[in-house]
Each structure stands twice: as structure tokens, then as C-alpha cells.
Design a protein around this nucleic acid. Structure first.
Lengths: 232, 232
DNA sequence: TTTCGGTAAACTGTCAACAGTTCGCAATGG
DNA sequence: CCATTGCGAACTGTTGACAGTTTACCGAAA
């Protein structure tokens, strides 16, 4: 940005706090840190061979992203989603995604529609290959792309900020809801088709239907996991 | 949360970083710090009689809120809104607020509708009293309340996160756009009425119209301010 | 055996100091 | 007079240490 012909391959400009945040984000989303688990600043600093300063900044970053929360004078904990949280996030996603669908549909952005169709196709392929992990990834990617393709960074960012924790749940969703899988597939394809139709109302409605369906599945899954957990 | 009967009036539990963030936020939104201005950590720490640690955390907090941005190894700067940013924020607001209007309308939440009507009434009173500052505050409050009354904290938070900087612009808006003032007033009241009608489509449409109108005004105002600034 | 109280360890919030980089300015050369 | 180079000041990124609070453990009393 500053100097066009900037040639400085030496000297890593990325602060330690950023790479630390990335590392912790990965570990949380990957499930290495369980929800509700306490995150010890000093221990992590020691383990990474750095001081507590960058670790604190990394935690502040993750807190802003909603991945961890703070209890004053007690420390940071990995965020845990209650059913009420899940409902909130799905409502927010509905607000963002239905609007994104309207935007793309109204603009008649052929490139964007093509991209969405491609992801939907890959999603079906993953389902037929019974690749659960890939299915969950592509499912999330479809919705992320929907927001990204609006070319409104803030809208996409608002989506990403809250989708992270959800993706840890979606990994389980597919395993428990095989019977609804075909409905999910056609549901995604319907969204693309209705966006392509240029009828903004239909595009919005398709998106809303899909999310209404999805939240029902996730809440049922969450309930199922909770009752199973209460057994042991 | 931990101890129900917690009575410890002594010992201030609010960290220095939080109160520092609040102070800086106030100063930025109040215009004491100009957009693009550099924020010196050491200087602010000295001025507040604290060390740089809490100041850094406060800056991280404000950065997460979008009020400041960082240039690596150079420091923090007060965020400045380009017309493209303004457009992005208004689109995001449109996504959030139209959905909020739908939610409240669908739920038929009389208490929420009453609250919105009350704010709209105060807004008209401020306009008649020619109280520009109060008008700007109530205008923003109306939209904030619209999101808050959904009782979806994340939706409201997404609104608040991006409305802060806008409010610094809205302060100017009123001064330059007297002729459109009456349109703005009726526009707010229309939103309340259409929400109250229970017709979710009408509620959504009223909200969308209002924001389309508002962004036009703000962009024109921004253009006006820019050309005026180019003169000196 | 259970509950209460006290003590010690652990952890967060905060501070002061160091290292490397960037920025500004003056001296130098064209 | 203008561009360039070198130096010094200032600032960010990072570190290690200290103070106060919270947590956990252990023993004593009911």
C-alpha cells in the first residue's frame, strides 16, 4: 500500500498477537478447546514461548469475535452456545442472508449466481460421497459466499463473526440427520434458482425457508446431544 | 452471577482498560479526535496517569468496534468513513432493520410498538424545537431501539457496532438538510404505523424506503462537506 | 461425616523497561 | 535550490516482574 515496489521478504511484519489469535481460533473451531473451558494466559504463553502480552491481545481479538468471553478477575473462557444463542444467531443470519439474496438477485450478478451454483453442486457431490466433514464445510461455505458475493465487507464480516461457533455444531448435525439431508440439498439449490429468477421476493423467501428448516434441525440436534450428555 | 448476595461496594471491579475504552469512545464520537488522527499510546497513558497496557487493550476494543484502525508498526488511527463505507453501513443497517421491523410486526409486540411511537414523538418535538443535537441523537436512538426491541442481542450489537461512526456524520446532516426534515419525520412515523399494521411486507418496505432516503441525504451531505473542505 | 475457616498457590490486572522499526530533520552533494 | 543520505528522536511490539484477588486445599470443630 505505502510503497508500490515494496521488496522486503525479510522481517516478518505480522505481530505475534495476530498469529497467536489465529492459532487459538483454529484450536477453538477445531474443538481442541471444549466450550466453557478456561484459557490460562500464562500457560499458553509458556507453551508458545512468548510473554503474556501478545496472548492477552489475542484473547481480546477472539473475545471481539465472540469465540471467548471474559469474567472479570477470573479469566477467559471458550464460549458455549445455549439454544437461545443458536436461535439468535440464526435470526441474525436470516437478516443478513435474505438481504444478500435480494441484493444478488436484484443485481442479476451472473458471476455470483454461477459461483453459488458451483458450491451447491460440490455440496451434492459431498453428500453422495458421504463425506460428512466436507459436507459441513461446504454448507457453511455456501452461506458465507452468499454474503461475500454482495461485495459488502461489513455484511460478510457480520456473518463470519457469528458463523464460527455454529460450524462446530454443524459438524455434528449431518451425522444425526441423515433423513433430512436430501431436503437440505434441494433447499440450497432452490435458493440459487430463485436468486437467478430475478424475483427478489422469491429469493428472500427461499432463503428464509432454508434457515427456518436448518435451525429446527440444529436445535433438535443440540437437544439430542444434551440429553445424551445428561446420561453419563 | 457467582454469589447471589454479593455485597462488595469496595474495590472497583471495572478494569482500567474498560474505562479507558469508554473515555476514548466518547472522545471519538464527540469529535474531539478527528478522523484519520493518530492516537499515541504513550501520550494517552501519561495523560491518564496509567501505563500503556490498558491503553493498548482499550485501543484493541475500539478497533474491534470499528472506531479505529491499525497500521502495523505505525500505530492506531481514528477511522474515517469514505462514501463507499457509508453505503456499506447503510446496506447492512437495511438488512438488520428491515428484519427487525418484520420480527416486531410479526410478533405484534405492543410494548415495542409503543416505545417506537414514543421515540418518534420525541423526535418530532426535537425538530419543532429546532434542537439539532437532540434530533440527531433521537434519530439514531429510534433505529437502535428498533433493533434492541427484537430482544436479539447479537442483532442489536451488529447495529451498534457500525452506527457509532455514522452518528458523527448525522450531527451534520440535519444542519444541511432542513428541507427534507419533514419527510424524515413522517418517514419514521410511517415505519411505526406499518409495523403496527401487522403487515410484515409493508413494515419491511417502509423501513427500506426510509433508509434509501437517508443514505441519499448522507451521501449528498458528505459530498458537500468534501467539496467545501477542498476549498481551503 | 460434614461444614466451616484459614492459609497457600495460582492467576489476572497493571506497570516499567528494552529492542527494533519508523519518522523527521539536518547536513551534504549535485 | 533541490534531492539524498545519515543520524537522532519517537513510537510500537514485546518482555519480565509486582500487587491484589480468586481459587483450592487442608485441618479443625460440630
Amino acid at each position: 500500500m505505502a510503497t508500490p515496489g515494496d521488496l522486503s521478504p525479510l522481517a516478518d511484519p505480522t505481530p505475534l498477537s495476530d498469529s497467536t489469535a489465529e492459532l487459538l481460533r483454529e484450536k477453538i473451531l477445531n474443538g481442541d478447546f471444549a466450550p466453557g473451558q478456561r484459557l490460562n494466559e500464562a500457560a499458553m504463553a509458556r507453551q508458545l514461548g512468548i510473554s503474556r502480552g501478545p496472548v492477552r491481545e489475542a484473547l481480546a481479538q477472539l473475545r471481539a469475535e465472540g469465540l471467548v468471553y471474559d469474567e472479570p478477575r477470573r479469566g477467559s473462557f471458550v464460549a458455549a452456545l445455549t439454544p437461545a444463542d443458536v436461535k439468535e444467531i440464526y435470526q441474525l443470519r436470516c437478516a443478513l442472508e435474505t438481504y444478500a439474496a435480494r441484493m444478488i438477485s436484484e443485481a442479476g450478478d451472473e458471476a455470483a449466481i454461477g459461483r453459488l451454483r458451483e458450491v451447491a453442486r460440490q455440496l451434492r457431490a459431498a453428500a453422495e460421497a458421504m463425506d460428512q466433514k466436507e459436507f459441513a464445510r461446504l454448507d457453511m461455505l455456501f452461506h458465507s459466499e452468499l454474503c461475500r458475493l454482495t461485495e459488502n465487507r461489513r455484511l460478510h464480516q457480520a456473518f463470519e463473526r457469528h458463523s464460527g461457533l455454529l460450524s462446530t455444531l454443524l459438524r455434528l448435525e449431518v451425522t444425526t440427520q441423515y433423513e433430512s439431508l436430501d431436503g437440505l440439498l434441494t433447499s440450497h439449490e432452490e435458493i440459487v434458482d430463485d436468486i437467478a429468477s430475478g424475483d427478489v421476493e422469491r429469493a428472500q423467501a427461499a432463503c428464509e425457508r432454508h434457515l427456518d428448516h436448518a435451525i429446527g434441525m440444529v436445535l433438535a440436534m443440540l437437544e439430542h446431544a444434551r440429553s445424551a450428555e445428561a446420561e453419563n
